[in-house]
Design a binder for these strands. Structure first.
Lengths: 363, 363
DNA sequence: CAAACTCCCGGAAACGTTTACAGCAAGCAG
DNA sequence: CTGCTTGCTGTAAACGTTTCCGGGAGTTTG
């Protein structure tokens, strides 16, 4: 005698049918009670009881099929290990949670096929919408974004005419802020440690750096420019290569992870920060404040961008007929000890240290 | 004249019915072709063509309702900003991806209701399984884990008789390793900066610290113990409080974020690391290696735990009748500059600098 | 007391797939 | 030529919900 059909699900779990049968009511009534809409006191009692007895738990997939929404929102970023995304995620999460939805994060690892695959999978209705922050954008990818079956908001630069909601910042200008600051502090041999040039932020920051130097009438010494990826180890390695062939008096880094790598390379090479080399990171993440000395950093408003992106997404989920919108968040510079002009300011009074010695390399 | 029913979905998107009608075949044939199973060459052509013309994209929710699986796996952690979870996530992701599934991450923020809510929501079939690393466990919570509708693997300590797949480590012993090392290096006034005592790791590490001191016959000075949460800012604040009232010659921290906070507090207070105060963190994350000096840290095998947890989960998804399993990963200690007895070792061979100097931060 | 209104209930139709089943045509062996 | 196999096809039934709709009972109003 096989199990009764229409009573429990394939794997033996109770369904609304099970509950209804046990309570002696129709599935319609059971469903109503379970959703807290309608039902006489008696019916409510019976259904609640039956549900508790069999340990009923609703199948969200079935419910979603009916309601056409899952209550889930996804965020796809390249590297969850980058604190900038953590900040962005926190901002997004608080907006999303306030709307009664849940946020899921997916790390694409920067592999573009991965990201496209994610779109082609998650977006097939598993989530009500998604926020994507791609660092590389191909035509293919863009196409997938544009005709995604679910609302998508892109955080980052995008072709001007792409019909996709978009929150961006201006990292070109951001790099400019860093250079302005360093030049004002008297630095002239300003180096730049960047991420890959085949990424959107990589190219923007490179352009920003070159433009800023030009603006100040400083000729660019290519030996002062080095490229790795956007992570710590690469930043450190890139800085080591740079230091082996040039003598910067300041370094701008394309993000904070790279800046930390650079700091490590500088200290290991016996350069003092900021006395010998001033250092400015980018993204202004918590990591910058966790360093010693604390790192100056260009804020690209990641939390703000996240918040705005989440709001754009929610409004589009609510009304898909809205025209594509584009928002911009201005960069700003946070000056801290790593690029202070005055003698290194210590967060708290330091004890009289033995007179700092200048390593010969920079003497 | 309303749109034709059974032809397109509620929001106007094409369904398999649309494609079938357009191709002039039944939905069964259309579905078969779309899934690449069966179909005459002629049918295949017509269906493919029709699908392309209308831009058909299958509704994953409907498919999942039918197949009873989504191909998604979730990881729920307290704080995605903690690099230990990033490492764990990477390990899990590689196993999960190899099985053709996708990993989604959810940050619970340690709010236990949040985590229970997640279980009660995601687990209601949105995902095929989930890995949870709770830092607080109530009976309620445990109950939700035990009779979750989808397979769950817990990373972390759990009541011995809990019928849940479980990967754990022994952080008590882990703290012991740190203390042993410091004692062997001649340190005696060993302080401890912990996370909240109402968390599972918090209590375990506290117990481990006390047991280790006792084992070495060192009387515990309560002024050398301080508590915050598991993040950087709290770690720094806790260390500042501790330093204001006691004079440790070594500090053990309950994780690397706290250790970074402690390092910052120590340097700001003018203490040299490791000369005045030796420092040992825990979790052995990338962050420990990013500091200067690099931090010694107790590895709790987070990547390994992640890997094992993912494997447990996949095997349980494949066969839910397996008995609950429990695996253990042993801790180990990575000794680095922050607790080195010998003169500060520089992390990487510095460029052949004339007479290596001790970088000023630690001078 | 009849009519109108409220409330609650159950049947049945969705939501968009996959798939068991049966029918049918064509190919082949006897 | 008959009977069997093979390969496609379409019909319809699932998957587990929610919800529209019509009917029946009870209550209020004129």
């Amino acid at each position: 005698m096989g199990r009764k059909r229409l009573q429990e699900s394939a794997d033996g779990r109770p369904t609304v049918h099970t509950v209804a049968a046990r309570a002696g009511v129709s599935i319609a009534s059971a469903s109503r009670v379970l959703n807290g809409v309608g039902g006489s006191p008696e019916t409510i009692r019976k259904v609640r009881e039956a549900a508790a007895e069999v340990g009923y738990v609703p199948n969200a997939i079935a419910r979603s099929l009916q309601s056409q929404r899952t209550g889930l929102v996804a965020l796809a970023v390249e590297d969850i290990g980058n604190p900038v995304y953590v900040e962005m995620m926190r901002a997004i999460e608080s907006v999303v949670a306030a709307s009664g939805r849940q946020l899921l994060v997916h790390a694409t690892g920067g592999r573009i096929d991965n990201e496209t695959a994610l779109l082609r999978r998650l977006a097939h209705r598993y989530v009500d919408g998604m926020i994507v922050s791609p660092i590389r954008v191909t035509d293919d990818h863009l196409a997938a974004l544009v005709d995604s079956p679910v609302p998508v908001v892109v955080v980052g630069q995008l072709a001007a005419d792409a019909p996709v909601d978009n929150v961006r910042t201006d990292s070109r200008t951001g790099v400019g802020l860093a250079v302005d600051h360093l030049v004002a502090a008297g630095r002239r041999r300003i180096g730049f440690v960047n991420g890959p040039l085949d990424t959107v932020p990589g190219t923007a920051r490179d352009a920003g750096f070159r433009a800023a130097l030009t603006r100040h009438g400083i000729a660019l010494d290519e030996r002062l420019v080095e490229v790795g990826d956007f992570r710590y180890a690469a930043g450190r390695a890139a800085t080591e290569r740079l230091l082996a062939r040039a003598h910067p008096d300041a370094l701008v880094c394309a993000n904070d992870l790279i800046a930390v790598g650079a700091l490590h390379a500088l200290l290991a090479a016996g350069r003092r920060v900021p006395d010998d080399v001033a250092l400015v990171g980018m993204d202004d993440t918590e990591l910058a404040r966790m360093m010693f000395p604390q790192l100056s950093s260009v804020s690209l408003g990641s939390a703000e961008r996240g918040r705005r992106a989440a709001e754009l997404l929610l409004s589009r989920i609510a009304d898909s007929s809205l025209p594509p919108r584009r928002e911009q968040v201005a960069p700003s510079l946070a000056v801290r000890a790593s690029s202070a002009t005055a003698p290194l300011t210590v967060p708290a009074p330091a004890p009289p240290a033995p007179a700092p010695r200048t390593p010969e390399v920079t003497a």
